[in-house]
Design a protein around this nucleic acid. Structure first.
Length: 471
RNA sequence: GCUCCCUUCGUCUAGCGGUUAGGACAUCGCCCUCUCAAGGCGGGAACACGGGUUCGAGUCCCGUAGGGAGCGCCA
């Protein structure tokens, strides 16, 4: 039997972190088992489902690289099928018409809650509904016995049927409800492993009863623990970004997000860093935790930095171009310096691609003003002589190479009996406008001779003005 | 309220009856250093509580507490 799994989001917003983790585990397990991964859009809630949300989910999945082998299927396109099954259930006596009004149901619920009971349908229409007209269809749940679920994550879990009630499977407007459509879909699509959040664990016995009424094989279940916010409550906007696409926009690498997510509820000994291939090779549902975990943005940031540092410079360079354009900095068609070279110089000092872009702006844009603090500290009278000497020596360097540039800076420092920092830092501020850049020799090499000399000249002029101003 | 699930450093976790309870993020200190980083070394930091079972319990069982989920004509 080959493994078939599905990821079944409902398109009512963005794809959030929790959903992405579920999709990842599902995808990894399927890849490892050589199975088929199905994407299904659960859009039976016509009130809240939107076309835009579907697109956002598709985009997020594509960005993460969690490609589906089948689908996307849309539940709204399968209404005929659900109704067919519901009719079969009615025919077989497993479902019945219910004409209870919402008012009666509300009252019933309130009364039960007030009495400290579990709110549930009282079965009034079980023996035959009164009257015609508006009605729903309810599933006739067995009233005794138990449902035992052998969950791959949680092990055996037992539910008494007496705890369950007759749930609505067809609304009064004729549309099917979730618990019915999932079962029909999972059965029809021959899903062998249902991998989902454990917020569904309580729904599972109802669904198992529907499988039985339909005489269809019950799939294996694996209920993953939830991801919570830092305060232990359900993950939401106030915990920072929860949308997958937001992470992309903020400069995270998909493999970093995935690497972070895979370690939430799963582990392989002490290993923290995983490539996609390693994840596929090592992932197993047997190693999934039962306890919920809290989302930790700092660890994600660390992983992002790590993956940027280890990333291929050609690819990171290309991405750097995208993020520069987002900042309205156009590196041009034939960037000078070349983006991969700049990326290489920044990879170990950027936590996000956005950060890398901000730190690299000066390569592609003139320095119009200096960071105030940096200029005050470094572009002062004492820096004039080193800058002048460096400028002169740099103008004469035969080959514009890192090594030669380094020697120039070194030599000027030695001549003036200054520490390296006293020479390098003024140059850094002069060429980058601020106090931070890659090593000075690399920075200058990338920037090129012309721009370097120009910017040093400008800094010398700036110092002269400053000296003049202070009298 | 009822039912189900969960409980190791602040956080993610290793552990699958005998460990000085390990790693990682974060944090603190030191080293390296032209800035920022990266890197190296080191420190502090956990088995929720109470009963059992056992020669022996973080590991097994039962309670308690705390947290989460479900109890919709949402999914």
């Amino acid at each position: 039997m080959t493994v078939r799994t599905r990821f079944a989001p409902s398109p009512t917003g963005y794809l959030h972190i929790g959903g992405a983790r579920t999709a990842l585990f599902c995808w990894l397990y399927t890849r490892r088992m050589g199975g088929t991964f199905v994407l299904r859009i659960e859009d039976t809630d016509r009130e809240r489902s939107t076309e835009a949300s579907v697109q956002v989910i598709l985009d997020a999945m594509a960005w993460l690289g969690l490609n589906a082998d089948e689908g996307p299927y849309y539940q709204t396109q399968r209404f005929d099928r659900y109704n067919e099954v519901i009719d079969q259930l009615i025919e077989a006596g497993h479902a019945y018409r219910c004409t209870c009004t919402r008012e009666r149901l509300d009252e019933l619920r309130q009364r039960q809650q007030a009495a400290g009971e579990k709110p549930r349908y009282d079965g009034k229409c079980r023996g035959g509904a009164e009257g015609e007209g508006e009605h729903v269809i309810r599933f006739r749940n067995p009233d005794d016995g138990q449902v035992v679920i052998d969950d791959l994550v949680h092990g055996y879990t037992v539910f008494d049927n007496a705890e369950l009630d007759d749930l609505i499977i067809r609304r009064s407007d004729g549309t099917p409800t979730y618990n019915l459509s999932v079962v029909v879909d999972d059965a029809d699509m021959e899903i062998t492993h249902v991998i989902r959040g454990d917020d569904h664990l309580n729904n599972t016995p109802r669904q198992v009863n529907i499988y039985r009424a339909l005489d269809r094989p019950v799939p294996v279940f694996a209920h993953l623990p939830m991801i919570l916010g830092a305060d232990g409550s359900r993950l939401s906007k106030r915990h920072g970004a929860v949308s997958v696409l937001e992470y992309r926009d903020e400069g995270y690498l998909p493999e970093a997000l995935l690497n972070y997510l895979v370690r939430l509820g799963w582990s392989h000994g002490d290993q923290e860093i995983f490539s996609m291939n390693e994840m596929i090779k090592l992932f197993d549902l047997a190693d999934v935790n039962k306890a919920p975990s809290k989302f930790n943005p700092e660890k994600l940031l660390w992983l992002n930095q790590h993956h940027i540092k280890d990333g291929d410079s050609a690819r990171i360079g290309k991405l750097l171009g995208d993020y520069l354009r987002k900042l309205d900095v156009d590196p041009g068609d034939d960037p000078d310096p070349a983006l991969p070279d700049v990326a290489r110089s920044q990879q170990e000092r950027a936590k996000t691609l956005t950060e890398m872009a901000m730190a690299s702006e000066f390569f592609y844009r003139d320095v119009h003003e200096y960071n105030e603090k940096a200029a005050k500290k470094n572009l002062k009278a004492a820096a004039r002589e080193p800058l002048v000497r460096v400028r002169a020596a740099l103008a004469d360097v035969p080959a514009w190479q890192t090594k030669d540039i380094h020697e120039v800076v070194d030599q000027v420092a030695a001549e003036l009996d200054l520490k390296m920092g006293k020479v390098a830092q003024p140059i850094r501020v002069a060429v980058s406008g601020g106090p931070i850049s890659p090593p000075i020799d690399i920075t200058l090499r990338l920037l090129g001779r012309n721009r370097t000399l120009e910017r040093i000249d400008r800094a010398i002029a700036f110092i002269d003005e400053r000296i003049a101003a202070s009298g």
